[in-house]
Design a binder for these strands. Structure first.
Length: 421
RNA sequence: GGAAGCGUGGCUGAGUGGUUGAAGGCACCGCUCUCGAAAAGCGGCAGGGGUGAAAACUUCUCGUGAGUUCAAAUCUCACCGCUUCCGCCA
């Protein structure tokens, strides 16, 4: 959410931002609506002031006749007040809907573009493996090694279902344990977050109203979070944090649920795109400074890079272009891992910052050294998602005999150096 | 799931229709006193919005929402949450 005052004073910047993101929203209509809102608001307040004044007078000793007359007068005020309040409510409904659709302004450094094909490659790391044999995909590899069961997964869970089993399960635990140790060295507080979250908080992160189709819903009007960003941002909703406690640095683990509506034909097989997965997420709340946001954004992104580097998987780093960016984001980097069988990089992690766009919606503020109150800045970045990471892991480290070499850093967590039959 | 009770400021706790945004206490921040500290005394201390250059004026918020009333923290209804007891349960 942007500040309505900012929107009024910086119409052109806001319009240009929406345009860069290819998001349609009529700022002029919003401002006309806001004019009406302010007009009604001041009338409502004037009427209330009258009412309060009379009420105050009537609290004291008043002659009966005067009192009766006052009540009569206030009846008229009341009728108009009711009418104006109703009108204001109607305006506010429309106003809020529009305000939720106004996107955050992308940073100058965000590349122009329409979709993910226009994302800008920033760097590549690692040597792509050269195989002396025809490499297999992760489905074939993991099935042969009895690490995964898609057939029964589909039987039990439905489309996109899977069971991880044996070394597949152990490898997942190894990654979680290693990742916990790795990221906690970066001074995060570890959390396990709920995935069932009240609907209102999805507006805070920007997942609603835009992505409603992609979110599972319970019969109690709670939604299943597709990332712990939602519960972790909601954690400090409606709070004023003392500046001494900033920055807040959280490493949250949670299951993640995504309906993948609209991607029915994409990645229908394997572990790339599933409805239920697990993710360790980095999240930071910091003071309201662009420089701080940029600093932490680079840091979070670098953490992810370092983690992937320690596993030894080749990756590509891209800056998300305007047209591929979500409404709430100021800037995003994606980390894409090499998938040998597909011969391309696939997304594994995403690091973004939001300035105070999310915290305005969550009403998460902090008090600085002078006692002044500001909306905090928020950032988040994937630490590691499972099981998607297994795709690149097993495909890059497969051997001619179908076994999989375990990256050295993971070996102590799984107790072996190779997964064999 | 059933029953009873309860939701007031950072905490505690008064307040059952009219100068109550809310007494008192604690915590916190200034100042006085002191060599310093403690104690004591004095003062300050919620957040949001509107108009305004500012001073200031004004409005909203006592779990949330709706209602009754000229007027609601106080009355009514619904919802949410908490506590205790029973039931069920990893």
């Amino acid at each position: 959410m942007l500040d309505i005052k900012f929107i009024r004073e910086n119409k052109d910047i806001v319009k240009a931002g929406a345009e860069k993101k290819h998001i349609e929203v009529d700022i002029d209509v919003l401002i006309v609506l806001d004019d009406k809102r302010l007009e009604l608001l001041s009338r409502v307040e004037a009427l209330r002031a009258e009412q309060n004044k009379a009420s105050l007078a009537m609290g004291g000793n008043v002659e009966h006749a005067v009192r009766t007359q006052m009540i009569e007068e206030m009846r008229i005020v009341k009728d108009e007040l009711k009418e104006k309040e109703e009108a204001l409510r109607e305006i506010m409904k429309e106003w809020k809907e529009l305000m939720f659709r106004v996107p955050n302004i992308p940073d100058m450094s965000v590349p122009e573009g329409n979709d993910e094909d226009d994302n800008k490659e920033l760097k590549v790391w690692g040597e792509k493996p050269v195989f002396s044999f025809e490499p297999k995909d992760h489905i074939e590899l993991m099935t042969a090694l009895d690490m995964v069961d898609f057939e029964r997964g589909t039987k039990v869970h439905g489309f996109r279902g899977y069971f991880l089993k044996n070394d597949g399960a152990l490898l997942s635990w190894a990654i979680w344990n290693y990742a916990m140790e790795f990221f906690l060295k970066k001074k995060f507080n570890p959390f396990i977050a709920p995935a069932i979250v009240n609907k209102e908080y999805f507006y805070g992160t920007g997942h609603l109203p835009g992505d409603a189709e992609d979110i599972f819903q319970t019969q109690d009007d709670q939604y299943l979070a597709g990332t712990s960003e939602v519960p972790m941002m909601a954690y400090h909703a409606d709070e004023i944090i003392p500046y001494t406690e900033l920055p807040k640095r959280y490493l949250a683990f949670s299951p993640c649920y995504r309906r993948e509506a609209g991607s029915h034909s994409k990645d229908v097989k394997g572990l790339i795109r599933v409805h239920e997965f697990y993710k360790l997420e980095q999240l930071i709340l910091c003071e309201a400074s662009h420089e701080e946001s940029v600093k932490f954004h680079e840091e979070l992104n670098r953490n992810t890079e370092e983690f992937i580097e320690s596993l030894g998987i080749p990756y590509q780093q891209v800056a998300i272009c305007g047209g591929d960016m979500k409404g709430a984001h100021v800037k995003s980097y994606d980390t894409n891992l090499w998938v040998p069988k597909e011969g391309k990089y696939r997304e594994i992690a995403s690091a973004s910052y939001y300035h105070d766009f999310q915290t305005r919606r969550f009403n998460t503020r902090y008090k600085d050294a002078n006692g002044k109150i500001y909306y905090a800045h928020s950032l988040n970045a994937t630490a590691i998602p499972t099981p998607r990471i297994l795709v690149s892991l097993v495909e890059n480290f497969q051997q001619a005999d179908g076994s999989i070499k375990i990256p050295e850093v993971l070996q102590k967590y799984i107790g072996k150096d190779t997964i064999t039959k």
